[in-house]
Each structure stands twice: as structure tokens, then as C-alpha cells.
Computed example of a mutant assay.
Amino acid sequence: MTKYKFISWNIDSLNAALTGTSDRAALSMAVVDKIASEKPDVLAIQETKLSDDDKKVKKIYDILVEKFPEYAIVHRISTPPARKGYSGTMMLWKKELGDPVVTFPEIDAPAPMDQEGRMITLEFPAFYVTTVYTPNAQEGLARLDLRGEWDDQYRAYLQTLDQEKPVFACGDFNVAVAEIDLSNPKGNHNTAGFSDQEREKFQALLSAGFTDSFRKIHGQIEKNFASGQSIYTWFAQRARTSKTNNSGWRIDYWLTSNRVAEKISKSEPIETGARLDHLPILLEFDL
């Protein structure tokens, strides 16, 4: 039996976090250092916003190699016709884990979603680890139907992986599946991330053979852990008091194949102090 520790984080721009000089950049770097101190076996990052600028990418990699020595790194950027410097994902893993098969899945999603760098999958001998930055339905649910097509294709993709070996799927899924997963469900009903369709699609994903690891460990926990730490994984930057008021959403997940759900020992957000936006999420399990 081997113990594993995985971390997933929507960083909202690697360049801003690692090379910026603002107060927010300092807060972001503190989170990076905190994650590094955890020494995860796998770290998945979403919304990297990297482009094809080789000099900038090299600078980012140099910093990451310093922060995460003995890790391998792969990343994926948005490519034409998708917008430059948009979306993007990255994965780091301990080199001692070996050389996984790395794929950059395209799932026949509505254009140009497959070109927005939204997914990376690592295939290890005993399992898959895959990360996703799910498209947002956008203000006024302008992209809801396209988001629904993505959800269907993504679910089919995970099911295909699951037929071969256990799956650990993480990322920013851009949906709070139940009322318990956000602080103001009534006020946000049928807004992006809490529409009936998005919630139904996510529930369909769970019903297709996957477990929400946080709910598996914590059950129907309300609002906060006993320690005072919030259950939420995202706090709006535009509302400066969102975190102090615990006005957040749980939209970042570690999902696991049902058959390995009993192996999970920990699943929870990692506290980020005064930094708003997404919190990293931690998963620990034995396999």
C-alpha cells in the first residue's frame, strides 16, 4: 500500500503569481511556497494563462524548478483559433513516480474549447490523474448550451479512462452542485455555476461512477470545519469582504472512481490567508 498526496489549484495566472510585484503576487507566492512545503506527489494547476512566449515560459519554469526540485513539469496553452494567453493547464509530478504517459485530450467539445488548453492527463501504471479547467457558462448563461455539450463530452471521456484503471480527476469544474456548496444559493439560482443544467450535468458525472471526495470524507458538513476553515474553494475578488464574510462557492473538486473512494483519507481546501479567488484543494489516499 502506497500513500499519495495530490494538490489541485486554479492559480489565475502563473506569470502574475510567480513574477509579479503586487501585494496579490506576494500572497500568491506564499501559497506556492505552502504547496511546495506539502511535497505533493502530483500538483495540477489550472488557468495558467501562459502563451507561446518562450522567454516568459522559461522564466516560469526556472522558478518552478527552484520551488519544486525533483519534479517533472508539463503544460498546455491555448492555440489558434482560441485566444492567446487564455485558460491553460499544467501538471507537476515527482520524478520518483516514473514517466507517466502524458496526453492533452481533445474531447470533441464545441469550438474552440478543445484548443483552449483545458485538460492534461497523466497515465501511471496504477491510475490516471487528469486535470480540467471547465468552461464557464458566462454572464447571463450566454454559453450554457455549449457548456452542456462540454459536460457531456467530458463525462464520456472520464468513463473511457475509468474502464481501464482508476481515475483521479481534479480541477475547477465551475459548478456548485448542491445548495450546501455556496453561501447564497437562493440569490445565485440560475446564475453561471449554479444553474439547474450545470448542477444536473455534474450530478450525472457523479452518477457515471465517480465520487466527490470532499463529500465522501466530510458528509453534509455545513459552512465551516470545526477549526473555522471554510469549506468553500472560491471567493470573489471583486467583493473584498467575501472571505471574511465566508461568502464563497465550492467549485473545485477531486473526483475519484467509485472503486477507490474508500481509499481516500483526506480531501479539503488549503487555507490561503488574505488571498481571494481559488484555494488549492488537497487529496490524500492509499492505493
Results as ranks from 00 to 15, higher is better:
A142Q: 13
A208F: 07
K55E: 12
A26G: 08
D23S: 11
T2H: 09
E268W: 00
K49I: 04
D99H: 09
L282A: 08
R199K: 08
G98Y: 04
A111L: 09
M90Q: 08
A72I: 01
A169W: 06
W150K: 07
Q203C: 07
D152G: 01
R24Q: 10
T134Y: 01
F6C: 02
V101W: 03
K186A: 15
N246S: 07
G228R: 12
G171D: 08
Y154K: 10
M113G: 00
P185Q: 13
D54A: 13
R118Y: 03
S230L: 05
E271R: 08
I270N: 07
N15C: 05
L287T: 13
L205V: 14
Y157V: 09
L205W: 10
F194H: 15
P69Q: 14
P269E: 10
I221H: 01
D252L: 04
E139W: 00
P269M: 09
F168A: 05
A17W: 00
L158V: 08
V57N: 12
V101H: 11
H75K: 10
S207I: 00
N10F: 02
D162V: 01
K39T: 12
K223T: 14
K165E: 05
A192C: 05
R118K: 06
K67F: 01
I7T: 11
S22H: 09
P166N: 12
E96C: 00
K56S: 10
G187H: 13
L64K: 09
E222G: 01
D252E: 05
E268F: 00
R215T: 07
F214Y: 11
R147I: 04
R275D: 03
F214G: 03
G209E: 05
D114Q: 06
